[in-house]
Design a protein around this nucleic acid. Structure first.
Length: 313
DNA sequence: AAGACGAAAGTGGTTGA
DNA sequence: TCAACAACTTTCGTCTT
């Protein structure tokens, strides 16, 4: 569907990617972008805390405009203070002048090195963003996080690349489009382990509270990457709900669960994908899919259904 | 030849004494 | 802080289509 009325507001385009087709998960009451899988409703209201997406109540044309207060992706927010040569400079004693001059020198050194650092970070951020095709919103979030990390001196001892990667990981989760650590590791050329470590460190030190990525998020994402139809994706979501009810998902890796649900759904709807194909986009091994698959099929009583489908060709 | 299956051994993270 | 533990991976051999 396209052009949706949601809670009295008209939504024409996905605020994430600009696509105009949506998918409605009726059970959850969630509205999902069909291209990028962004959950238009929930996430927007729950986590969009820095700026309001629905800024203008009266105008129906301008509903989807994010009023960004400042661009965090710029090196200088325009707020830098400097030790200037004020008119009072001449009143200082020679000793104080000396001190003052020293402070000026220090400031130059500090700002130029931290700016270099920041430029480096922003270059890396832009590089990864364009590879992942990240929206501006996520980019901004990531740079905001990076700045916070710098302010709290959390970058010391860690590479800029790692911190940027971790920020992107967090930002993508905040906005409901979780990248996996595996994906980021592949693209950035860093190890999953290091990024994970940096992520946990930042997460703690910045006192973030981001809900963990759910299998649901990944089903949308992987489903789209696999080119599966809405029908199959819905089926996978149904399977997931069932599995959750029976407590088959707690403690399991969400990507593995999502992968298995999609695999089974693809068998049930005849839109078959191989374990290998699913494993590839989900960045898990076939073995993991098989383990989840076995559990799900036996506990959800799907054996005969699958057997019937098999004999049917 | 490709896909599915599973055993065995190893890795890294979590948890609880 | 250390050991036990579960989830997941890697590797590899086997079976089916």
């Amino acid at each position: 569907m396209s052009g949706v009325i949601l809670k009295g507001r008209k939504i024409e385009r996905c605020p994430m990617c600009g696509y105009d087709k949506f998918y409605l998960d009726e059970e959850r009451g969630e509205l999902i972008c069909m291209r990028c899988g962004y959950v238009v409703e929930e996430s927007m209201i729950d986590y969009g805390r820095e700026w309001r997406i629905f800024e203008d109540e009266s105008s129906s044309r301008e509903l989807i405009r994010a009023g960004k207060p400042v661009s965090y992706s710029k090196v200088d927010l325009g707020l830098t203070t400097s030790f200037g040569r004020g008119s009072d400079f001449s009143k200082l004693s020679p000793k104080d002048r000396e001190k003052f001059a020293e402070l000026q020198r220090w400031q130059q050194i500090l700002t130029s090195s931290s700016e270099r650092n920041l430029k480096h970070a922003i270059r890396e951020l832009n590089r990864l963003s364009s590879i992942f095709n990240l929206s501006e919103v996520i980019k901004e979030e990531a740079s905001k996080l990076y700045r916070q990390a710098v302010e709290k001196n959390l970058v010391r001892g860690r590479s800029v690349e790692n911190v940027v990667a971790a920020c992107i990981y967090i930002a993508s989760r905040i906005h409901g489009l979780p990248l996996t650590l595996n994906e980021i590791a592949e693209v950035s050329g860093l190890s999953k382990k290091e990024i994970g470590k940096t992520f946990r460190y930042l997460y703690k030190q910045l006192r973030l509270k981001v809900p963990p990525a759910t299998a649901r998020d990944y089903i949308y994402k992987f489903g789209n990457q696999l080119g599966l139809s809405q029908k199959t994706i819905s089926k996978a979501l149904e399977l997931l709900s069932e599995a959750e009810k029976q407590g088959l998902t707690s403690g399991k890796g969400p990507t593995g669960v999502a992968a298995a649900c999609l695999y089974i759904a693809s068998l049930l709807t005849g839109e078959k994908k191989t374990q290998g194909q699913v494993a590839e986009v989900a960045r898990v091994t076939e073995v993991t899919i098989r383990n989840r698959y076995k559990e799900l099929v036996s506990k959800l009583g799907l054996e005969e259904k699958l057997r019937k489908l098999e004999s049917l060709e």
